[in-house]
């Protein structure tokens, strides 16, 4: 994910999770600007009301992301967050992110092979290039277990370039800008 970036490079990173000590420490080798969006911190995004207008959801998402309009993201750390959103909200997230992504943007997240949610819901920190630290989320959100195909259809902002099978039917997904 970070191969090709040299220490000291200026990079812009979006992490859809909460602020994280390990990730910040890891990114401090770069001249990084990092946005921690903490998507599940927003009540409307955590449990969208049934009658909410899609435009209001898009506004809530944009506010939560807090990204200036002229931002160009180099790396988007998606983790499990697409699975914490229903498909209409995944589509809205895709449309909100799309203007901020470029052809070389990379994304990283997880998928599920058999539609089973993981045993625990975690947020993650990057300890080093090969190691993640997992921390339990404060609340266990609903997990929608979107298939890879569904993600491809409903999250066109980034394309799934590669998937690697992990234990317990988990998939490591590498995204790239299109």
């Amino acid at each position: 994910m970070f191969a090709g970036f040299e220490e000291g490079d200026r990079i812009t990173v979006l992490d859809l999770g909460p602020g994280n000590a390990e990730t910040l420490r890891f990114l401090s080798r770069f001249r990084a600007r990092v946005y921690f969006a903490d998507l599940l911190d927003h009540p409307v995004l955590r449990e969208p009301p049934e009658d909410i207008d899609p435009g209001d959801l898009a506004t809530a998402l944009s506010q939560q992301l807090g990204l200036p309009g002229d931002t160009r993201l180099d790396v988007c750390l998606i983790w499990d967050y697409l699975h914490y959103l229903d498909l209409p909200l995944v589509e809205i997230l895709s449309s909100v992110l799309r203007p901020l992504l470029a052809k070389g943007t990379r994304g990283y997240g997880f998928g599920t092979l058999h539609g089973k949610p993981p045993q625990d819901s975690n947020h993650y920190g990057i300890t080093d290039l090969e190691t993640l630290a997992a921390h339990p989320l404060d609340t266990q959100p609903r997990y929608f277990a979107h298939s890879q195909q569904r993600l491809g259809e409903h999250f066109p902002a980034l394309q799934i370039a590669r998937a690697t099978l992990l234990r317990e039917g988990r998939l490591e997904l590498f995204f790239e800008g299109v």
């Binding site: 200026r10 909460p18 602020g19 910040l24 990114l27 401090s28 770069f30 001249r31 990084a32 600007r33 990092v34 946005y35 921690f36 969006a37 903490d38 911190d41 939560q64 807090g66 990204l67």
Partner: peptide
């Protein structure tokens, strides 16, 4: 607990 951006440069 942190939400927002961090610019280290």
């Amino acid at each position: 607990k942190f939400r927002g951006s961090i610019d280290m440069d």
